[in-house]
Amino acid sequence: MPVVAVGLSHHTSPVELRERLAFAEPTLPEALQKLRSSTLSDEAVILSTCNRVELYVAGARDPAATLTALRQFLLDWHSFRDPLGSELYSYAEPESLEHLFKVACGLDSMVLGETEILGQLKRAYDLALQHQHTGKRLNKAFQRAFNVAKQIRTETNIQRGTVSVGSAAVELAQTIFTSLSDRTVMVIGAGDTSEKTARALLSRGAQHILVTNRSFDRAAALAAELGGRAVAFDGWAEEFAAVDIVISSTSAPGYVLDRARLEPLVRLRRHRPLLLIDIAVPRDIDPEVNRLDGVYLYNIDDLQTIAADALRQRQEEIARCETIIREKVKALLAAPPAGFLSGSKLAFGS
């Protein structure tokens, strides 16, 4: 029973088309049920995100016939009657498995190496599993895809580094702290970049967030958005003992934090590491504080340098990731229960 895949993504189609062919989450169980009952497939998983819609199926039918029928199913389900060209792609084995593995690893994502897609893929698989639409073939293929994604995350730098200032801050925090889940982040100055940086830290597990701003109302509004707590601008130092990461982006003309002010606060923290991210221009934090034990200060230029280097490195890592994926697909196909066919990309719409 070979695994085949039909779909479209941000690489092949504009958002106007993707939104017309996307599956609303509540309709997924019904779509899966119909896919199964139509004898198109014995097993099925539907992945529908803002950047891609993909149908993975395994069945006893001939792959070429299955792919044609799958494509028709996708169009019929959405009552789509417009002509389509190369927007839809179709894969038989081994390309279908290679594609699945690449998607899981973020190699096919808009932001190269991003990890959000792995969570979406896991949810899509879990839904199909819960409704008993998967079997030996897809279970094995998806579980192997999750394993490969983990291996690539561990052994390569494809998911390290970043393309934004916010995620550069996350990288730094992960180099210093064992876990971000019990870290407290303080945002000084409620600007746009500091908000994005705080959001990036929250998305990686940081749970406690404090916001302070000259305008308390603005601080309170941002704190409410981020699920944190607003602190009066004159009183932020009192909270400092519990803070691990500071993001500062005020428009103050001079330093908001200098060595003389920080030194006693560092002692209060019992020399736990402190990451200071100064994204303000002119700078908010005196560079001298970097000399204090356990204090790590990075300004906007440092973060941008990290982001640029990371992007270059991610691009260099693609070849390594693809080699790993090819090996894993080969291993998966080498030890099948039955029904693995060597196929090739079938050019629908051509």
Binding site: N157, R160, G161, T175, F177, T178, P273, T305, I306
Partner: peptide, 25 residues
């Protein structure tokens, strides 16, 4: 690793080394 972080060397971020807090632990 701590020295690389202090001197803002890119190696600190891209090296596949554990976080300094874990190394201390």
């Amino acid at each position: 690793q701590e020295r690389d972080l202090k001197h803002r060397r890119l190696r600190a971020v891209f090296a596949l080394l554990p976080p300094i807090q874990r190394l201390e632990a």
